[in-house]
Amino acid sequence: MMKMNKECKKTIRIMEVCGTHTQAISKSGIRYLLPNHVKLLSGPGCPVCVTNESYIDAAIGLLSHDHVILVTFGDMLKVRGTSSSLSEKKMKDNVITIYSPEDAITLARKWPQKIVVFLAVGFETTAPIMAATIKNAYENGPENLFFLTALKRMEPILRFILEDERNKIDGLICPGHVASVLGADAFQFVTKEYQVPAVVCGFEAEDLKAGIYNLLDQIEGERPVSFLNLYQRCVRNTGNRLAKECMDEVFQKEDGYWRGIGKVSNSALGLREKYQRLDVKNKFDLSEEIISNPSACQCREIILGLKAPYECKQFGVRCTPETPLGPCMISSEGSCSAHYKYGRVIF
């Protein structure tokens, strides 16, 4: 860390795009160790935070059917649609929090007379296990299990950020979990096409220190700009072949809608034709009314790395974890939420 503290006037902006990195950075207190000119920014790495309002509205709409049970990961409960959240609308047993997609199958078998709908949200980290669950349900049942998907892809949103003419990102900490599935090579384009230093790193404090140290070396010209995989204990260059194959079999690329950002081409994973009968939208003839960027706060700028959370006027004033205005404050892995919890006070 001594090296990091040397005098330098130019502001250096390093972005991470994984919710777990956002939390790990805040929990490790690493910002306290960095000189003021090094800013750590959080990109759109929390899948819950970037889930569009229309998706939540559709999920809430399903609750109007008496025989529907929604199963979801806990973080989704607080996310607001256009007017309310699942936690506000749920009755005792119609929204159930689970910790593994496999639990959705168990619950559907337990209640054969109900329609169990799994809210499948996540990046390529969770997409393979979702794919495996969907494949399993398609081949073996239960017949009463359906899916409402909002799975996102990391590469298109990274390109969206890097191609923004206001982009000021000097270095990128690539998402370690997504890389463990897709492979480190999937992020080579950051350095090759955009000449931005990038590292894949793990989630322990020491991993983050090593990653930031390496990026600073590159940014300050002490070593050539290059792409480095510092998380080799988990991430192979080619990734996890089985996981990728399973994902490819079940999902296809389609346009995605990101809360606070809007439409990003090819940024979502939708069900392939073969698996469409498991899509709850077909079962109930649902359609999502896409909503673009209605946020009262500056989450768009924060997610795109143009502003830090504390530069938003609503941060900590009207927008708190209890009353989130925008996506970054919703999930515990959101950048504003992590800043609010762990970093409000400058020591």
């Binding site: 805040s26 207190g29 690493i30 404090a205 974890p321 762990y342």
Partner: peptide, 22 residues
């Protein structure tokens, strides 16, 4: 006297431990 609880982390960083919210 800022009425704060904070943690000196394993790597020597610092972070605030606020009251439970949520």
């Amino acid at each position: 006297c800022q009425k704060l609880v904070y943690l000196q982390t394993d790597i020597g960083g610092k972070r605030v431990l606020p009251s439970l919210e949520g």
